[in-house]
Design a protein around this nucleic acid. Structure first.
Ligand SMILES: [Zn+2]
Ligand SMILES: [Zn+2]
Ligand SMILES: [Zn+2]
Ligand SMILES: [Zn+2]
Lengths: 131, 131
DNA sequence: TTAAATATGTTATATTATTACACAGCGTTA
DNA sequence: TAACGCTGTGTAATAATATAACATATTTAA
């Protein structure tokens, strides 16, 4: 169990919104949606997003500048993430595959650098878009 | 051999600059550098970057919004890319590992989605920064 | 040699993200 | 309890990244 109870007001509002969406949300679309809850400025959104990413509640889809809720018991606090992205409808799914994460967590190349984090984005066409 | 000879003037100028840099360059820093060569507007830079990415001469480091030259004979035209990124000095190296690329190119999860492209970014501390 | 495709140049604007500053609440500890 | 550190909030301004729209030029290929 993670410590969920410590989320602040803004963090809760924004996590709630992202969790209710089945697709990635962009920061300014989040801002638009939470204005009715009294969150008025980009920075308020970005601060909450930063924190939520840090604790693994959400992930940033880097190639899309958008945020999704973690579907994967908070992904070792966002240290090991993988997504599949449909290039047609922009549907994004978090990939949850133990073999893959094991493989990547243990990956070491000749540089001798030891990685403590990775992010992987797969692109293709989803079932629907493949026709 | 790829068809390099077909690069346009702006594309050549910008590829040349990126190839001479050992680290990722950002679009507006490229713009600043190529002003003396008569490239004056962001769009001119972004258009060249788009094309160079498309043909696999350069890659975009998504988590950094920056561009590096391909060190890897143009990575199947940018369809399969992996990088290691030092979170301290921001040094970026293209990972060239046949087993890894084979593994990821063949990866398929239960979604049934077949991927035609991926991008992987590893994060950690490089040798120097590990002290 | 015309038409399509690709590239250029320019202006304006949209989108994404951060800096800087003031202050509030809460738990620790001196 | 007072002082402090830490985390979060609110607000304004601005920086950094990227694209739209339009006009024109150049290259390629039928
Ligand atoms: Zn996750
Ligand atoms: Zn799709
Ligand atoms: Zn490459
Ligand atoms: Zn380093």
């Amino acid at each position: 169990m993670q410590k969920q109870e410590t989320l602040s007001k803004n963090q809760k509002i924004i996590l709630d919104l992202i969790e209710k969406s089945d697709q990635p949300l962009k920061a300014y679309s989040i801002l638009f949606d939470v204005k009715k809850k009294g969150i008025n400025a980009p920075l308020q959104v970005y601060r909450a997003l930063d924190k939520l990413v840090e604790i693994g509640k959400i992930h940033k889809i880097e190639s899309r500048n958008a945020f999704v809720a973690c579907k994967n018991s908070n992904c070792q606090v966002s240290k090991a993430t993988a997504f599949s992205i449909c290039e047609s409808c922009e549907d994004v799914t978090e990939v949850s595959n133990l073999k893959l994460s094991k493989y990547l967590n243990n990956f070491a190349d000749k540089s001798g650098m030891k990685y403590n984090k990775y992010n992987l984005e797969f692109f293709g066409l989803c079932k629907n878009c493949k026709k």
